[in-house]
C-alpha cells in the first residue's frame, strides 16, 4: 500500500512478460526459424547445411506443388468472388423488410458455425456419384444423368469451392447486412424522389458505400484460402490423384509424412509471402488513413 503505483506497475509488467515472451518466441522466432530451415538441406532432422535457394528450385519443379498453387488460385478467385456475390445478394434480399427475417438470417449463417471437416463430409456424401445426387436423379428416371465432379480430376476442385462458398457466404451476409443497416436512410429517400431504379442505386451508390465492408470480407476470405486445409482433407483427401492438393496440405504432408523439412519450409515460406502480399493493400490503406487522420 505504501508504494501502490510502483508495485502495481511492477505487477503489470511481470504479468505481461510471459505473453511478450510467447509472442516473440512463436510469432517472430518460429517464423524466422521456419524461413531459415527453408534455406537448408534438412530432411528428417533439421540441419544448418546452407543450400541457398535449392529447396525453392526443387519446390517449383515439383508437379504436386504447381498443382497445389494452381488450385489455390482457382479456389481463391472463385471462392472469394462466389462468397462475396452470394453473401451480398442474400444481405440485399434480406434487407427488403421481409417477414421472418431472423429465420432467413439464422439459416444462411448456420454453416459458419460448422467446422470445415463437417462441411467437407456432408458435401462429400451428397456429391458422391455412387449413392448421392447422381444416383438419385438416375433412379428417378434420367438414367444417363452424370454428375461426377467429386471424382473427376478436372472438376473435383470446383466441388471444394462450392462447399466452401456454402460455408462462408453467411459470414459475408452478416457483415454486409450490418453495413446495409448503417446506410443513411436519406440516401434512399433522395434516390426515390429522383426516380432512380433500385438496382442502380445498389450498383452505383450502395456498393461504393459498402467499400470497407467488402474490403474486410475479401481479407477474411482470402486468409481462409491460404489456410485452407481441413476442407480438402475431409472432402477429397487431395484426390483424385493430386487433383485437389493445396499448399497447406503439401507443406504438412512433406513435414509429417515425407520427412522433407527443407522443402516443406520452402513451401511454408511461399505461403507466408502470399499472406503478406494479400495483406499489403490493407496495411497500405490503414497506414495512409492513419497518416491522413493524424
Amino acid at each position: 500500500m505504501k508504494y501502490p503505483l510502483i508495485s502495481s506497475r511492477l505487477a503489470a509488467r511481470l504479468t505481461i512478460l510471459p505473453f511478450v515472451v510467447i509472442a516473440l518466441t512463436i510469432f517472430v522466432g518460429c517464423v524466422l526459424w521456419s524461413v531459415q530451415l527453408s534455406f537448408t538441406s534438412s530432411k528428417l532432422l533439421p540441419n544448418s547445411d546452407f543450400v541457398g535457394l535449392d529447396q525453392y528450385i526443387r519446390l517449383f519443379n515439383t508437379t504436386r506443388w504447381i498443382v497445389s498453387l494452381k488450385n489455390m488460385v482457382i479456389f481463391g478467385v472463385l471462392f472469394t468472388s462466389g462468397s462475396l456475390i452470394l453473401g451480398f445478394l442474400l444481405a440485399v434480399f434480406i434487407d427488403q423488410k421481409v417477414r421472418a427475417e431472423s429465420f432467413f438470417r439464422t439459416v444462411f449463417l448456420y454453416p459458419h458455425a460448422l467446422s470445415f471437416v463437417v462441411t467437407g463430409l456432408a458435401w462429400q456424401w451428397f456429391l458422391n456419384p455412387a449413392l448421392g445426387l447422381q444416383e438419385m436423379v438416375r433412379v428417378a428416371g434420367w438414367e444417363s444423368f452424370t454428375f461426377d465432379w467429386l471424382v473427376n480430376r478436372d472438376f473435383a476442385i470446383y466441388t471444394v469451392v462450392f462447399a466452401a462458398i456454402w460455408q462462408a457466404s453467411g459470414l459475408v451476409m452478416a457483415l454486409m447486412l450490418a453495413g446495409l443497416r448503417g446506410v443513411d436512410p436519406e440516401i434512399w429517400k433522395a434516390t426515390k424522389i429522383d426516380g432512380v431504379p433500385t438496382w442502380r442505386v445498389y450498383l452505383h451508390v450502395i456498393i461504393p458505400i459498402l467499400g470497407p465492408v467488402i474490403f474486410t470480407s475479401v481479407i477474411l476470405l482470402s486468409l481462409s484460402v491460404v489456410k485452407g486445409y481441413d476442407i480438402v482433407v475431409a472432402m477429397t483427401g487431395g484426390g483424385p490423384g493430386i487433383a485437389t492438393e493445396v499448399p497447406a496440405k503439401f507443406v504438412l504432408d512433406h513435414l509429417l509424412q515425407r520427412a522433407n523439412i527443407g522443402l516443406a519450409m520452402a513451401g511454408a515460406t511461399v505461403m507466408l509471402l502470399t499472406v503478406i502480399a494479400a495483406l499489403a493493400p490493407w496495411l497500405y490503406v490503414k497506414h495512409v488513413k492513419k497518416g491522413a487522420n493524424g
Binding site: F27, W33, S34, V226, K227, L252, A264, G267, L272
Partner: peptide, 9 residues
Amino acid sequence: IPYQALIYP
C-alpha cells in the same frame, strides 16, 4: 501467419 510457417519449430 499461416500455421504451416509455425508448426515445425
